[in-house]
Amino acid sequence: MVTSVAFTEPHQASADVVVLLGNPSVWQDGRLYVVPEGCKRLLAFVALQRGRVDRRHAAGSLWPDGSDDRASGNLRSALWRLRGSGIDVLESDKMSVFLRERTITDLDALCEWADRLIAGTATEIDMHVPEWTTTVAELLPGWYDEWVIFERERIRQRMLHALEVLSRVLRASERYGEAIDAAMSAVAVEPLRESAHRVLAEAHFAEGNCIEARRTFVRYRDIARRELGVEPSRAFQVWLQASVLPRAM
């Protein structure tokens, strides 16, 4: 598995980093800290909110069983244990809990990269497939809280859109090998995503590999039939018939 260290190293000199892709940990003052089990959920919950979190909301969300007093006590205990382990990235007052100033998450780098591509403001340094694309589905793996599932899906969708945009931009620049790599990364993250398969087919076609483009379509068609019981969209089929098949014969 690709770790999240690739995100954090550029920021270590200026910020502490909460690592959420994979097992939660913290880079602080250039040192990696393992987060105690009893503190992971609180740290992750606050870090994903990206702002001040009401103490009662955090306590009720993380410890829904039992009384409000019990939940508040659990929150205070988690804060105490986190600081006792040497991790000093959360601050709190009577009303809220929040990340300390100059503390970021490894998701920040991922989202900023994706946002630049989607918005059309990417620079040359963004024109590559990051090593960490395979970790996008590993946001807090094994956690099934609703707030985790929602954020995991939101980040995954943003990454998929960015990879598809990247493939199109690289294809337009005639960097076909890199365009294919970006599209294949999107397919690897979500094998049932038609738009990812189509971007891949278009990259193969642009490079002049009509047979590969057709194989990509057939591979997706077979997966869609087997897993979903549906056919590829009419638009994908029309594109294949009009563009690929006449040149593949």
Rank of each mutant, 00 (worst) to 15 (best):
T105R: 07
I180K: 02
T134R: 12
E178Y: 00
S167L: 03
V97A: 09
G73Q: 13
M127I: 01
S167K: 02
S92N: 12
G86I: 08
Y176I: 00
D181W: 00
D181F: 02
L140A: 09
S92D: 15
G177N: 02
A162P: 05
L160W: 01
Y144Q: 14
W143L: 09
D181L: 05
A172L: 07
E124Y: 03
T105E: 11
M95S: 15
S77I: 06
V165N: 00
L160C: 05
R158A: 05
M95P: 00
S173T: 00
H161Q: 14
E112M: 11
A137K: 13
E164K: 10
R175A: 05
L160R: 05
V165S: 00
V169H: 01
R152L: 06
R100T: 06
D93F: 03
A122E: 11
T133D: 07
L139S: 10
D145N: 05
A109C: 04
A172G: 09
D108V: 14
E151H: 10
T133Y: 14
V165G: 00
L139I: 08
P141Y: 06
A162G: 06
V165E: 05
E112L: 14
I149D: 14
P130L: 02
R83E: 13
G142M: 08
T135N: 11
W147P: 01
A78N: 08
D115S: 12
D145W: 04
G142S: 08
W113Q: 06
D106G: 13
S96D: 14
A109W: 08
R154D: 14
A182D: 01
P141C: 09
W113D: 05
R168Y: 05
G177T: 01
G177S: 04
D181Q: 07
R175Q: 09
R81M: 11
V148M: 12
E146F: 06
G73N: 12
L79W: 09
D115Y: 01
T123V: 12
L99T: 06
R83W: 14
R158P: 02
E112S: 14
F98H: 09
R116L: 07
L75V: 11
A179L: 01
A179F: 00
D108E: 13
I87P: 01
R175F: 00
A137G: 14
F150I: 12
A179Q: 01
T121A: 12
R175K: 06
S92A: 15
G120M: 04
Y176V: 00
D126Q: 06
I125C: 04
D93W: 07
L163C: 08
A122H: 08
E146R: 08
V129D: 05
R168N: 10
D145L: 05
A78S: 15
L166E: 04
F150E: 14
I118G: 03
T123P: 00
L140M: 11
A162N: 05
G84A: 11
S96W: 03
L75E: 10
R156K: 15
R76C: 09
R156E: 12
T121H: 07
E124V: 03
L82H: 09
D106H: 10
G86Q: 11
W143D: 13
A78I: 07
D106W: 08
A78L: 09
T103N: 08
H128V: 03
R83L: 07
E151N: 10
R168E: 15
A179H: 01
S167D: 03
A122L: 02
